[in-house]
Nucleic acid binder design. Structure first.
Length: 512
RNA sequence: GGGCCGGUAGCUCAGUAGGUAGAGCAUCUGACUUUUAAUCAGAUGGUCACAGGUUCGAUCCCUGUCCGGCUCACCA
C-alpha cells in the first residue's frame, strides 16, 4: 500500500468518530488528522534504521565532549519516546529501542522551523526515527543532536506514569506489551528465559541428543497423572486430548532407534491455576537409551549448574529472601529417609501402612481416603512434611511403585522404582526414572490404573495399546526425565510467580 | 471450589464516621535553546467495577455478580 493510500484511509477514518473515545484518545486522533492535512504520513514506513541505541552507547562510552565534538559520525536509529522535556525552541527526548535508551536533543535551529512545528505535536509513546551526531550535555550525558526526526508511528493511548510506572498486576498480565514497554526488569526476565532455553538446547545437542517434535493432540492422554483438555477434530469426527506429557511418544522414538531424544514444548493440564501452575507450561523431556536414572542425576546436576553459571554468573544465587546453593554434589535422599529427617517419625512407622495412616491422620492432620495405598500415603506424607523444607537441591529416590506406573521396579525391592525427583526451593523441578520396558509388567500396571480410573480416580492413566505394542517390539533399557522449564526460569530469575516468567499467562475472560 | 484482601481520573494513589470526589504524573493552553521525576502560570478530565437493597439522599452500609491478588485443596 502506498503512503498516499494510507493517508486516504485515515481521512476516511476521520468521518467515523469513535463515540466512546476518551478525550485523550480524541486529542491524539486529531493530531493524526493534523499530520494528514499537512501531507505527513503518521505511520511512515520509509525510515532506514542503521544503528541501535546500545551500539551508539558502546561506541562512545569513553569519549569526552572534545572527542565527540570533532567526530563526524551520524547515526540513524528509531524507537519509542518514553519522556520529553520541552524548552521553547528545543527539547530533550528519551528514545527507547529494543537495545536500550538514548537521549535526543531536538532544536529548531537544527531541524528547521517546519519540522519543529510537526515535532511539537509528538507525544510520549510515539515511535520516531532519529538522525544525528553524538555529543555530551552539560551534565555529561551522551546524547544525539538530531539533524532529522521523523514520526514513524503515532501512538493513540497514553503510557503509564513515568515514575511509578505500571504496577497493577492484572494489567501487566493482560497487556504484557505495556508491561514490557515500561518495565525494563520484565524485559530482562524474558531475555533470560530465552537464553536459558537456548543454553539447554545447546547442552542437549552437544551431548548427542536429537531434538524432536511429537504430537500435541493425543487420542489417549498418557504419560502423566493429570486431567486433560479435550478438543474435537471435525473431519475425523473424534475427540482429541491436548497432551499432558510427551513421554509415551518419545519412548516410541527410542524403540524406533533414536537412542537420545529431547523435546522442549508445552504440556496442558486441566487443573488449578496458582503461583506455580499455569494450564499450559513448558517442559523439557529427554530419553537416553542404555542409561539409568542414576546417570540422569549426574547429568541433571551438570546441566542446571552449567546454565546457572552462564545466566547468574555463579552457583550461589538469591531466591526470595534467602540464597540457594547449587554447588555440586547435590544431596540424595530416599523418600522415607526424607520423611524421617524432616518429621522425626520413627522409620518403623513408615514400614507399616496402618501406622503410617495413623501418623498422617493423627500427627499431621491429613485427611486421606481410608483405603489409600501404602505408597500413595507415603507420597502424601512426604509432600506434607519434607517437600517445603527442601531448599537447596536434593534428589529424592525410592518412590513407591504404586504411584509410578511407567517406571522400572528396583531389582532388589519391587515395592519401589528406580526414580528420582529433584527439589529446589521447596518445589519439584524434575522427575526422572529408568523406564519400564517390560511389556508384560507395563500391561499389568495399566490394568491397575484402569481399575483406579473406574474407581473414580480421574487422573489415573489410560490404557495405550499402541504404546504396549511398541514395548513388545522392545524398548532398550532407557532412562528419561522431565524438567519444568518455567520453574527453572523462576529459580534463575528470582521470580515468585510462574506468571512472571510466562509472557501471556492464562487469565479469566475480562468483562467489557 | 473454600477462606482472606482488593477494584476511585490514562497511570500511581488519597478520601468521604452516608450530603454524588481530590493530589501527583500524563493531557490541553501559554512562557522557556542543556533538561534528565525539568521549571513556572492556567485549564480539562470520574456512571467511585456492575446490579439490586436500606435511606430524604449511597462511592461509603447490606446482598449478589464480575475481575484480580494471596492462601488452602489438586497438581509440575
Amino acid at each position: 500500500m502506498t503512503a498516499y493510500a494510507c493517508l486516504e484511509i485515515y481521512i476516511q477514518g476521520k468521518s467515523q468518530p469513535m463515540e466512546d473515545a476518551s478525550d485523550l484518545l480524541q486529542q491524539r486522533r486529531a493530531k493524526i488528522d493534523h499530520y494528514v492535512a499537512a501531507g505527513v504520513n503518521p505511520f511512515a514506513n520509509d525510515f532506514k534504521v542503521l544503528h541501535t541505541t546500545a551500539e551508539i552507547c558502546q561506541a562512545h562510552a569513553d569519549d569526552d565532549s572534545e572527542t565527540l565534538a570533532s567526530a563526524t559520525v551520524e547515526y540513524r536509529f528509531a524507537g519509542r519516546i518514553m519522556a520529553r522535556r520541552d524548552f521553547g525552541k528545543a527539547a530533550f527526548l528519551q528514545v527507547q529501542d529494543g537495545s536500550g535508551l538514548m537521549q535526543v536533543y531536538v532544536a529548531q535551529k537544527e531541524i528547521g522551523e517546519a519540522s519543529f512545528v510537526l515535532f511539537k505535536k509528538y507525544d510520549i509513546g510515539d515511535i520516531v526515527g532519529v538522525c544525528g551526531a553524538p555529543f555530551r550535555t552539560k551534565t555529561n550525558e551522551l546524547s544525539i543532536r538530531a539533524s532529522q526526526v521523523q514520526l514513524l508511528t503515532k501512538s493513540l493511548l497514553p503510557l503509564p506514569e513515568k515514575w511509578h510506572g505500571l504496577t497493577d498486576v492484572e494489567t501487566r498480565y493482560r497487556q504484557r506489551y505495556l508491561d514490557l514497554m515500561v518495565n525494563p526488569e520484565v524485559r530482562e526476565v524474558f531475555r533470560k528465559r530465552s537464553r536459558i532455553i537456548n543454553l539447554i538446547r545447546e547442552f542437549m545437542l552437544k551431548h548427542d541428543y536429537l531434538e524432536v517434535e511429537t504430537p500435541m493432540m493425543h487420542q489417549v492422554a498418557g504419560g502423566a497423572t493429570a486431567k486433560p483438555f479435550v478438543t474435537h477434530h471435525n473431519t475425523l469426527k473424534m475427540d482429541l486430548f491436548l497432551r499432558i506429557a510427551p513421554e509415551l511418544y518419545l519412548k516410541r522414538l527410542v524403540v524406533g532407534g533414536f537412542d537420545r531424544v529431547f523435546e522442549i514444548n508445552r504440556n496442558f493440564r486441566n487443573e488449578g491455576i496458582s503461583i506455580q501452575h499455569n494450564p499450559e507450561f513448558t517442559m523439557m523431556e529427554f530419553y537416553q537409551a542404555y542409561a539409568t536414572y542414576s546417570d540422569l542425576m549426574d547429568f541433571t546436576e551438570k546441566l542446571i549448574c552449567h546454565i546457572a553459571e552462564q545466566v547468574c554468573g555463579g552457583l550461589v544465587i538469591p531466591y526470595g529472601e534467602k540464597m540457594v546453593d547449587l554447588t555440586p554434589p547435590w544431596d540424595r535422599l530416599t523418600l522415607k529417609d526424607a520423611i524421617v529427617k524432616y518429621s522425626g517419625v520413627g522409620r518403623e512407622v513408615l514400614e507399616s501402612r496402618d501406622l503410617s495412616l495413623a501418623f498422617a491422620e493423627q500427627k499431621l492432620g491429613l485427611e486421606v481416603d481410608a483405603n489409600i495405598g501404602h505408597g500413595k500415603l507415603l507420597a502424601e506424607i512426604f509432600d506434607e512434611v519434607a517437600e517445603p523444607q527442601l531448599w537447596n537441591p536434593v534428589f529424592i529416590t525410592e518412590y513407591p511403585t504404586e504411584i509410578s506406573p511407567l517406571s522400572r521396579k528396583n531389582d532388589d525391592n519391587p515395592e519401589v522404582v528406580d526414580r528420582f525427583e529433584l527439589f529446589i526451593v521447596g518445589r519439584e523441578l524434575a522427575n526422572a526414572f529408568s523406564e519400564l520396558n517390560n511389556p508384560i509388567d507395563q500391561k499389568e500396571r495399566f490394568v491397575r490404573q484402569l481399575a483406579e480410573k473406574e474407581a473414580g480416580d480421574e487422573e489415573a492413566h489410560a490404557m495405550d495399546e499402541d504404546y504396549l505394542r511398541a514395548l513388545e517390539y522392545g524398548l532398550p533399557p532407557t532412562a528419561g526425565e522431565g524438567i519444568g522449564i518455567d520453574r527453572l526460569v523462576m529459580l534463575l530469575t528470582n521470580s515468585a510467580s510462574i506468571r512472571d516468567v510466562i509472557l501471556f499467562p492464562q487469565m479469566r475472560r475480562q468483562g467489557d
